[in-house]
């Protein structure tokens, strides 16, 4: 059975939520979806910040090659 909360969690997980999760109240499912997307976004921000910082300390002779490797 599809509900807005279950759909939101499925979108956040990029997968059909595991069987059993549908027992949760819909607002809790929506909240879980928010927690998953927030964790992913936090992880992304951390990744970008770390990358910036790392490029600042990578030895100059290999910096261009490293930038290319990470797609910058």
């Amino acid at each position: 059975m599809s509900t807005p909360g279950l759909d939101a969690l499925g979108t956040a997980l990029h997968a059909t939520p595991a069987p059993g999760l549908e027992e949760l109240p819909d607002e809790q499912l929506a909240d879980l979806a928010l927690l998953v997307t927030t964790a992913e976004e936090t992880q992304r921000l951390e990744l970008h910040a770390s990358l910036d910082e790392a490029l600042g300390v990578v030895p100059r002779p290999v910096r261009a090659a490293v930038r290319r490797a990470v797609g910058l």
């Binding site: 997980l13 998953v36 990578v58």
Partner: peptide, 28 residues
């Protein structure tokens, strides 16, 4: 099962950039 799904999602997110860092690690 839910934890596995969250793990999968977080590991797949921005995977190409993480792979880029792994490739760059080999240059150092």
């Amino acid at each position: 099962a839910f934890r596995d799904q969250v793990t999968e999602r977080l590991f797949e997110a921005d995977r190409s950039q993480v792979a880029g860092i792994a490739a760059a690690t080999g240059l150092l």
